[in-house]
């Protein structure tokens, strides 16, 4: 009996401990002033995206530069379904039924997430035939295509100008709840037979093929599943500030989310969470130093751009001295008993 309880505890501890850390963090940060809460909310949204990235990159070992395109599709999808019709009429030029459509936020989010998933399936079928650097370049190309289409499809996305009028509902608690859901889903996938088969192919593709694993199919499953999570991250991002612009779904976010995953350690869920927290906190601290502070009458401020330099430096150090990331690809172990034999 005790053995069974402990077995279950051991199984869920790696994800439960991460969830606890997130809940404690959110509870503490929600007591802070509004700017801090917003920084925290943004970090939780980033976390969802990083967890989505981890589902694919961590389990398959294939780098993807294209996941931010799912974020963009989720964000714009939800925007089209939730902006009030009289506003859509002014700024966009949509088919009448779409102009008149205004859904509650949750169904809109689900549809938008599904839209990302469908898109991921369509591009995933050919892309998952590739591996290594060609897969990475293929996903990057898909990001570039989505970005250019969104920047120029004036009738539907408002083009390069701002899309305004989205209902704002993402606060720290909403972001936390979705982050916890993403965490649970990612862990469930990782422990399922699908996740294990994909990780087997990550360690040794030939051996995995030889044992009868359909590597392409497993990769596609992870790709499509991760697109749903990342798409949801995009939806929450859209409803966080209520303004969309195509430029916020391109290289900057791609770089920062990948940096989070790499710094934390891309082979474990603990790595995804740790990386997001470390990079967010460091980024915020550097931003504060950039803004400067007063000592008596002396105002000290670092040069602008310190944040980007600092993060890039950290990433370089990690790659040089701890290539597996801060967590070295490990999950958090059950603390009470000695290591399971």
């Amino acid at each position: 009996m005790v053995g069974r309880v402990e077995k279950t505890a051991r199984l869920i501890w790696p994800v439960l401990s991460l969830a606890l850390v997130l809940v404690v963090l959110a509870a503490l940060l929600s007591l802070g002033p509004m700017p801090l809460q917003r920084t925290a909310t943004e970090a939780f949204i980033r976390l969802i995206v990083v967890i989505g990235l981890y589902i694919f990159i961590g389990n398959s070992g294939i780098l993807s530069f294209g996941h931010v395109s799912f974020m963009a599709i989720g964000a714009y999808g939800s925007a089209l379904l939730t902006i009030p019709p009289n506003m859509k009429k002014i700024v966009l030029d949509l088919p009448p039924f779409l102009t008149a459509l205004q859904l509650p936020t949750i169904p809109a989010a689900l549809i938008a997430g599904t839209l990302s998933t469908v898109f991921a399936f369509v591009i995933g079928v050919p892309l998952m035939r590739l591996s290594g650097i060609s897969a990475a370049m293929g996903t990057f190309a898909s990001l570039a295509i989505v970005y250019v289409v969104i920047s120029n499809w004036k009738e539907v996305t408002g083009g390069a100008s701002a899309l305004i009028g989205l209902p704002v509902y993402t606060d720290i608690w909403v972001a936390l709840i979705y982050a916890l859901l993403a965490l649970g889903l990612a862990y469930a996938y990782q422990e399922s037979r699908y996740g294990r088969r994909l990780r087997a192919s990550r360690e040794n593709e030939v051996a995995a093929l030889a044992t009868g694993i359909n590597v392409r199919r497993e990769r596609l499953i992870a790709f499509v599943f991760s697109a749903f999570i990342v798409g949801f991250g995009g939806v929450l991002h859209a409803h966080f500030i209520g303004v969309l612009s195509s430029s916020s779904f391109y290289l900057d976010v791609t770089f920062i989310t990948l940096a989070m995953l790499v710094i934390g350690g891309m082979n474990s869920l603990a790595g995804a969470v740790t990386g997001t927290i470390v990079v967010s906190v460091l980024g915020e601290l550097l931003r504060l130093i950039e803004a400067g502070f007063d000592i008596g009458t002396l105002h000290l401020a670092a040069p602008r751009g310190l944040r980007e330099v600092g993060l890039s430096f950290l990433m370089l150090m990690i790659l040089l001295f701890r290539p597996q990331g801060l967590t070295s690809g490990r999950e958090i172990a059950w603390p009470l008993a000695p290591k399971a034999g």
Partner: peptide
């Protein structure tokens, strides 16, 4: 799955965060 002993990092960060930010109140 490989295991990592104690995630002190995250807890340390909680402390750092709550200390690091002291924005002026309204």
């Amino acid at each position: 799955m490989k295991m990592m002993k104690v995630p002190c990092v995250a807890l340390g960060l909680v402390a750092a965060t709550s200390l690091g930010f002291s924005h002026q109140a309204a």
